[in-house]
């Protein structure tokens, strides 16, 4: 099976985010492989172990994004490709999905594309569906399990996570899947993987390499500003019992014109 895992370099969720002169800053906190993408890489590796084939990690980004690819390689991915171009500076997901779909075409005969459910910096979670649409492949978002995969029949069954319960879906391959954390437990990088990841030359593809003309984003970021600071005060409701506490709370909420 030829499996592609799309990964992203993101800010560590523990970082302190600030906006300075319209530019987002996270200080010295290192960037990390998008935590959701670790589950996608792990699933790709497990499917490779079960069915054979290869796992290629794919990303769009500047040089620093190589670290996300090296993390995937250190976990055990076979190959990695980085897409980088000056024309991608203000890319939104419409642009990124175009570029990723072109790269997946270029990789040729891909059976399965995996995404983490969303990137922790944007929290949009739409890229996997957009890529699927551009490829003309089924989109199986929020997958929590892959109980059946029959590469020879080009068939897959997944369990998708719903608000309540799960939905079992059968689809043809190739397909695009986004995964949730319930799907697996990502492995640590191995020493062998780390060694390989640190040495491998990662090819860089430009828009020209992908045969993509200049792409225009659908969204323009006009201004970036920090969220307004708010003073938080905590008031404890004292009462003899829960019923009295509830009444007092309702009265307070009415006073504050919340309800």
């Amino acid at each position: 099976m030829k499996i592609v895992v799309c990964v992203k370099q993101t800010v560590d969720t523990a970082a302190e985010i600030a906006v300075e002169q319209g530019v987002i800053s996270w200080g010295d906190t290192p960037l990390v492989l998008n935590p959701w993408d670790e589950f996608a890489v792990e699933e790709g590796l497990r499917l490779r172990e079960a069915h054979g084939g290869s796992v290629t990690a794919l990303t769009v980004g500047a040089e620093s994004a190589q670290d996300a690819l090296r993390s995937a390689l250190a976990m055990g991915a076979d190959n990695a490709v980085r897409i980088s171009d000056s024309g991608l500076e203000f890319a939104d997901s419409l642009v990124i999905s175009t570029v990723l779909a072109a790269a997946i075409h270029k990789l040729d005969e891909v059976d399965l594309v995996l995404f983490g459910r969303e990137a922790v910096d944007s929290n949009a979670g739409v890229l996997s569906a957009q890529v699927a649409r551009r490829l003309g492949w089924p989109s199986l978002a929020l997958t929590a399990a892959i109980p059946v995969l029959t590469p020879a029949d080009k068939s897959i069954e997944v369990e998708r996570m719903l608000d309540r319960g799960r939905q079992r879906v059968r689809s043809s391959l190739p397909a695009v899947i986004s995964v949730v954390k319930e799907i697996n437990e990502p492995r640590y990088a191995s020493f062998m993987g780390i060694r390989k990841a640190s040495r491998v030359e990662i090819p860089i593809w430009s828009l020209a390499d992908l045969g993509v003309d200049s792409v225009q984003p659908g969204v323009a970021w006009l201004e970036m500003s920090a969220a307004p600071q708010s003073d938080v005060a905590c008031e404890f409701i004292e009462a003899v019992d829960e019923a009295a506490a509830a009444q007092t709370l309702v009265a307070r909420l009415r006073e504050e014109k919340v309800i």
Binding site: R70, I194, A197, S198
Partner: peptide
Amino acid sequence: LSSEHEMIRKMVYDFA
């Protein structure tokens, strides 16, 4: 530190 050393550091950190 080399990228190999950085990755080792991160892996051990994550493990612990």
